[in-house]
């Protein structure tokens, strides 16, 4: 994916030193949920109760989707972490009536909780469904307040939240960079999910650093943008799952799942 490095520097963005991004290697994700819990610990995400799950209102800024293929015993399950793609041409941004969403000069899609009136139009328009509305007030038992991260606001009820690419860590690292007077090295700065991920399926870095890991990974043959056809110009690059036995929806293959690899939507198809 040669163009990933030149991936969108969005409208009006003044040249800034950094352009943050992530590469997610689908081949490495084991579905372990470490990133999900790390994100919750870092970003003061409210406790998801059983009721939230029953009502499908659970809040996760990064979620692991699991897709089935095939039927027993030739069955496969695959995992893919999905979080905000920090789109260069973000469908969520122009639909917000109050400018609560803005593209930062460093390639982030920034949500300003203060401004959000909670129309959820952005939620509809995000093709990746990563914008979560906080239906209920965030509450923790008093003793758990001790754990809350003071670098991150506790959001009030009635607004949309999503992955900030751990903006608080980016800000801190930049301050540190300014203080020490030298640029940070690739990997010095990590969001909570990438930091925790045991298999390093999530790699964070700076697209403007030519030698950064994300640039080198995104130059490989496995790189793709999720839902590229929508023209959202995501700032996140995925690396394809490798499956030597993959047959797509073709027929037989010795010992590997073949049929029903994917489903076709009904009625007529091409």
């Amino acid at each position: 994916m040669a163009d990933a490095a030149q991936a969108p520097v969005q409208s009006g963005a003044v040249d800034s030193l950094h352009k943050w991004g992530m590469v997610i290697d689908v081949d490495l994700c084991t579905g372990c949920q470490a990133c999900v819990v790390a994100c919750q610990a870092e970003n003061n995400i409210p406790l998801n109760t059983a009721d939230h799950f029953v009502k499908h209102r659970a809040m996760e800024w990064i979620r692991i989707e699991r897709y089935w293929e095939g039927e027993f015993p030739n069955v496969k399950a695959r995992f893919i972490p999905v979080t905000c793609q920090h789109c260069g041409n973000a469908p969520c941004e122009p639909v917000c009536p109050v400018y609560a969403i803005q593209h930062s000069t460093e390639g982030l899609n920034v949500q300003t909780y203060n401004r959000c009136v909670g129309t959820r139009y952005c939620g509809n328009n995000c093709p990746y469904s990563v914008r979560v509305f906080n239906w209920e007030p965030h509450r923790w038992p008093e003793s758990l307040h001790a754990q809350l991260n003071p670098d991150v606001t506790v959001r009030t009820q009635g607004l949309i939240e999503k992955c900030s690419m751990c903006l608080q860590r980016i800000n801190r690292a930049k301050r540190e960079e300014a203080r020490q007077g030298r640029p940070m090295a690739d990997g010095d700065l990590q969001p909570a999910c990438a930091q925790a991920c045991p298999t390093s399926a999530i790699v964070f870095g700076d697209w403007k650093d030519r030698n950064s890991r994300i640039n080198r990974l995104a130059n490989g043959t496995r790189a793709y943008h999720m839902l590229d056809e929508l023209g959202t110009q995501p700032n996140l690059v995925y690396l394809k799952k490798v499956d030597p036995n993959y047959t797509g929806h073709g027929p037989e293959h010795a010992g590997a799942p073949a049929q029903h690899a994917t489903r076709s939507l009904p009625v007529i198809s091409g």
Binding site: H52, F53, R63, E65, R78, T221, L227, V242, H249, L265
Partner: peptide, 27 residues
């Protein structure tokens, strides 16, 4: 009972024409 789970209500199988999880045979 309603089993509390994160997955939605549809059968979780990728859509052939829009694979968000892309797969390749060789690395």
């Amino acid at each position: 009972m309603s089993l509390p789970k994160y997955e939605g209500t549809a059968e979780s199988v990728q859509i052939e024409e829009f694979q968000i999880l892309k797969i390749t045979r060789d690395a």
